[in-house]
Design a protein around this nucleic acid. Structure first.
Lengths: 218, 218
DNA sequence: ATTTATTTTTAGACAAAACTAAAAATTTGT
DNA sequence: ACAAATTTTTAGTTTTGTCTAAAAATAAAT
């Protein structure tokens, strides 16, 4: 597997191509910041290798082997992210870029040892689940903060947007995984939220709230 | 810098091209298991980028910038080797292959943090010095075990050959960095050595002895 | 249901990094 | 010093992954 092939497989997985729902050429091209014609070329190659299903004009979806491959890459990516945060004091907005490189290192032993060193973590620094060696992972039940009703309380368990600007905003406002958040009030006008986090109160836009996952206390 | 460019720079450095002694196209090709014509192509490209001095038919040597680049790659390679051994329990015969990949990861912060995590090691698992961030490193005075006179005592400080078979042989015979070795006798016929290591005695060929570095006790 | 718009694919080209085969320069040997 | 051997370079291909421009298929719209 070349680096490029791995990146296509990963992108198709993230776009939902694991459920035999075919993903459009254009969608893949946009996500990867490349041209649709390049995607077509790669789709053919990956189909030849048995990693994707591909019918002309019908989009691309992952085969069983393709899904296994995608999970293996995602496992590596997320384990490296945990390593960077836990062992090297990276912040959660710094890890993605470096993990994009580290995920392509070819050594079964290396990633298993990293897993062990970290004591087999189940979630990465953004709250996303880490597939196990055999490709299984726990999908934690969670909902968007923006979907909570007024007065509901939840624990922050993940972020949808993992971009550095968003994560830095969260840091600046004391929002981190594990924090308890209560919805104090919702503005009808713009869906913005008044929330309580620890002891302090905060007013956040719908944009922010709809990119934060919480696990509701019931 | 592409991966391939980095590999050429590193090879030229290892062949001695840092002392403005030009290295022959053929020598580089042989070392890299590629063809001389490929080396010529790359020599031109690296010269254009100001990393090497190159005159047709005269071989290749590193510029100041080229040397700095080489030291940076070697620093990464050796730090990763230490990491693999100290933190992930790799053996010294397993590290090279993986470090060859890890050395190309592009992140200043990553390698500095790894350096810090390891407490700024000065030597890699084979006894080779690790260049500092500013490209300086300690060349330890050492000599080949095969050059010691009978009865001399030295501490094992490095290996010349770093191939897995050689390193495994050493492991099997209890030879490791830091061990004290005494030359008990030399066979005139084949230059083989009788040595004492810890409490046990051992008979090793000249081949072995000429790939082991020791620091003499005087 | 045709026309229009969009999406996708083909065809041809390009850059990087490798290769082969042949030509040119250098080195070696007598 | 000159022929022979070796080394190095050139020229032309190949592969991988990308691109542009044009053609073909599908989807949308009146």
């Amino acid at each position: 597997m070349t680096r490029s092939e791995e990146n296509y497989i990963k992108t198709i997985f993230h776009l939902g191509g694991s459920d035999s729902v075919p993903i459009a050429t254009n969608a893949i091209a946009e996500q990867m910041e490349t041209k649709p014609s390049s995607v077509t070329d790669m789709a053919k190659k990956l189909a030849d290798k048995g990693l994707v299903h591909y019918k002309k004009y019908q989009g691309v979806s992952l085969t069983e082997v393709g899904i296994k491959t995608a999970l293996s890459i995602i496992r590596k990516h997320r384990l490296w992210e945990v390593f960077l945060v836990k062992k090297l004091d990276f912040t959660w907005d710094e890890v993605h870029e470096v993990a994009e490189q580290l995920e392509h290192i070819k050594s079964e032993k290396l990633i298993d040892k990293i897993d062990e060193l970290l004591d087999f973590p189940k979630y990465d620094p953004h709250g996303d689940p880490i597939p196990s060696k055999d490709g299984k992972f726990m999908i934690r039940d969670k909902e968007l903060l923006s979907d909570l009703e007024v007065n509901a309380i939840g624990v922050c368990v993940g972020v949808k947007d993992t971009s550095a600007p968003f994560l830095k905003f969260l840091d600046k406002n004391g929002i981190a995984l594990g924090k308890t958040i209560q919805v104090l009030d919702k503005e009808d006008f713009d869906q913005s939220l008044h929330i309580k986090i620890d002891t302090s109160e905060l007013h956040i836009s719908h944009q922010i709230a709809s990119n934060l996952y919480v696990k509701k206390n019931d």
